[in-house]
């Protein structure tokens, strides 16, 4: 709690607070206006925030609250998204490693990698569904493919970012390939991999929610469309919106945490400094231009 207050009173905390407050204010003004102008079910368009908050404990049946229903469906979807994410991550890692180890593999695999990026994977979801015949497996496959691409390309970029001199240094020590990868290539590529994971995580979540809408049954996507068709409480929709947003932020934070535990804060501190100094240089340039003129 102390920490929270400290964060709130620090400069960034205030920015966040103002943002949230402004967002809530705009939301409430909208809800009030709609409440005053729309006669039937204004909450179908935009409910008040407190209505959404209150809905958390509302029952949908004798045994379940709306929130409970959302959670059951969230688990069905997100556990699959997580499995797909992990598979995609492993596959992307291995492919990037193979591509960096062997020119031949790189030449063969790179066009396919580009191709994957161009195909709208979500459009292929029905094909994946009919091939696998199972919505859970389809969620995993789609999430895996979507994670695979950013991880593979970012890691490859990480491997390629190692300077010629660094390679030559290892060469001068007559280091073998294994040592070279453990001591130089992987540590260099790790921050790039995390960049890829940060891109992939929300994509994997979004994708598996969208895959849900292909078939009835359990899943956040199903519940979402049912709620929008008023087959179940509209507040399920709003709860899903907020939970998904929270999960998106949480997943990015979690990856950031794992990153700082493995790669260490050093690198992010470093890149922050680089970005700042680049900004400074630009300012100097501008100043120089002014004085010249």
């Amino acid at each position: 709690m102390k920490n929270f207050i400290k964060r709130l009173t620090s400069k960034n905390g205030w920015v966040l607070f103002v943002w949230l407050a402004a967002l809530a204010a705009v939301w409430e003004i909208g809800a009030t206006v709609i409440g005053a102008t729309v006669r039937n079910h204004p909450e179908y368009i935009l409910p008040h925030l407190w209505q959404i908050a209150a809905s958390v404990v509302q029952p949908v049946s004798d045994t379940q609250t709306i929130f409970g229903l959302v959670m059951v469906n969230a688990w069905a979807t997100l556990s699959r998204a997580l499995v797909g994410f992990l598979i995609g991550m492993a596959a992307g890692f291995v492919l990037a490693l193979l591509m960096s180890l062997s020119r031949a593999v790189e030449k063969i695999a790179f066009p396919y990698l580009m191709l994957i990026q161009m195909i709208p994977i979500l459009g292929m979801a029905p094909i994946v569904l009919s091939l696998t015949g199972d919505i859970g497996v389809s969620r995993i496959v789609i999430a895996a493919i979507l994670t695979f691409y950013p991880v593979a390309t970012n890691m490859l970029a990480g491997f390629r970012s190692v300077s010629r001199e660094k390679h030559e240094l290892m060469y001068s020590y007559a280091a073998n390939t294994f040592v070279k990868y453990v001591k130089m290539m992987l540590p260099s590529a790790l921050p790039y991999m995390f960049t890829g994971l940060k891109i992939a995580a929300p994509m994997a979540v979004t994708a598996s929610i969208l895959v849900d809408t292909l078939q009835g049954g359990v899943g956040l996507g199903c519940l979402l469309s049912q709620s929008l068709k008023h087959n179940t409480s509209i507040y399920a929709f709003w709860e899903i919106v907020f939970i998904s947003a929270a999960l998106g932020i949480l997943s990015a934070k979690l990856i950031g945490l794992i990153e700082s535990l493995t790669v260490g804060g050093r690198l992010s501190a470093l890149s922050g400094r680089l970005i700042r100094s680049a900004g400074k240089e630009k300012r100097y340039e501008k100043q120089a231009e002014k004085t010249e003129a």
Partner: peptide, 27 residues
């Protein structure tokens, strides 16, 4: 032989001492 380049070519995720230790780790 040991090589020294125009740029320091240090491994930025390693501390100074661990940078110097690198060739010793390799042997």
């Amino acid at each position: 032989y040991g090589m020294v380049f125009q740029s320091p070519v240090l491994y930025e995720w390693r501390t100074i001492i661990r940078n110097v230790e690198l060739p010793l780790e390799i042997i």
